[in-house]
Write a protein that binds this DNA or RNA. Sequence first.
RNA 1: GAUCUCGUAGCUCAGCUGGUAGAGCAUGUGACUUUUAAUCACAGGGUCCAGGGUUCGAGUCCCUGCGAGAUCACCA
Length: 502
Amino acid sequence: MQDTERNEQELHRLEKLSLLRSAGVDPYPVSFDKTHDAAEILEKFSDSEADKFSSVTLAGRIMGIRRMGKATFCHIQDATGRIQIYLKKDDLGEWYEHQQQFDIGDIIGTSGYVFRTRMGEITLHATSLVLLAKSVTPIPVVKEELDESGNVIRHDAFADKEQRYRKRYLDLIVNPHIKQTFILRSRVISEMRRFFDARGWLEVETPILQPLYGGATARPFVTHHNALGVDLYLRIADELYLKRLIVGGFEGVYEISKNFRNEGMDKTHNPEFTSMEIYVAYKDYLWMMDMLEELISTIVTTLFASNTVAHQGTDISFARPFPRKKMSELFVEYTGTEVIGKSKEELIAIARATKVDVETSWSAMKLLDEIFSVKVQPNLIQPTFVIDYPVEMSPLAKKHRSSPELVERFELFINGKEIANAFSELNDPIDQRSRLEEQSAIRAAGDDEAMVVDEDFLHAIEVGMPPTAGLGIGIDRLVMLLTNCDSIRDVLFFPQMKPERL
RNA sequence: GAUCUCGUAGCUCAGCUGGUAGAGCAUGUGACUUUUAAUCACAGGGUCCAGGGUUCGAGUCCCUGCGAGAUCACCA
């Protein structure tokens, strides 16, 4: 950026930077040894044992400065929180002069002893001070105060969602409370890994760039490999590769992966999102339901020390067992009619009778899906397994052991949202081929979300896959649920945004 | 993709029926050695998202575009 494009405040900061340099101060030293964190001092300091903190070294970003002539108070923020620093001219000598050039946003290091001010705030009395990084552009100024009951009141909060998402680093600095969401996200994933690893299942990595995409019904992103001269697709699901690994002899594999779908964006959809898929040999969907129940309730109780989580005003209970309801029963319960096995025309009539908006051009599968998502899904607030789906809706699931028009599939719904999807995997190669060919026909008829035939995948299934249970979990949605967020953008550090034209 | 709302100083926001652009914080100068949304005095800071139109005159009214948020539709 040219200096002529800089605003007044930036020019002031650049001038201070050069003043500091000419006074012999290195504004960007290479490292700094800190001994404590802010939170540690605020938690452990006591007036009777002040000598425990008679020599501490802290580092952090200046978030506020109050200069009072020959004494200055500032708050610095480190990864753990904010703490006040007391700077006194008599104690700091030339560095007291240097700090006149410090601004909100600068990163400093300081040593001294901890005391409590007349106003009662635990504070570091600095006996030495250094600059660790000069900030040359202003950050949003957010002032905080505490009300009588100790709640934080923020003034002039940095609240513009667009700017917060585009400049997440600023959001994290001035709204540090949002870090909790991301820390919890990370812990959800760690707990999941710990759970799977403890059972001996192997974390694996499969291709993101794929010559053919599959494993879900969705539109893909297309990219191009120059050396090979071929188009490649960004994966929409892990499923087909993970099953190849089960064919190859692994008996439990999982992958936590970014998937990419070239579709609309809204509160619950980002073009890239994180899912976890796991496949375990010799198991079926009933076993998988037990496993998932245990997984989710383990994560919740580990992270919250409780099996209840508050989400957008509703308490969600993760106490086992979660109810298991057949899809057909739910249809009867919420629409008053049996819908499984009905013809397209009958389904349209049922939809109209129950005030569900549908189009006559839709397939039976899409009609069922629509009626389900309008009439049934919003009622599934507490964790509920929906089991036994119509075969047309699930081209990769095994036919039900007792009803050939159904498949052995379940989805876990919480707060009206699908959190997980699983089935007894289809390992009959003849059936699998005919199901993919049906998809291919639907695709040829104009549905560009239908699956394509992957001959290599079919070959793998022909080689022989053991009976296998597979599960996918939408990590972003699970995290939204557990962090009380109603937008996927709040659980992604860098949500996809339209390019900003300046 | 459709509808509604929004875009003004570094940040948060005012700006009425169209008449020379406002506040608080932040910034600069000065005072102040336990302050805390520090205080007090003075000062500087704007392509009012972009481009057209109506008008003597547009931040304001109209149109188009860009970006965002909310709601709806589709997908996880």
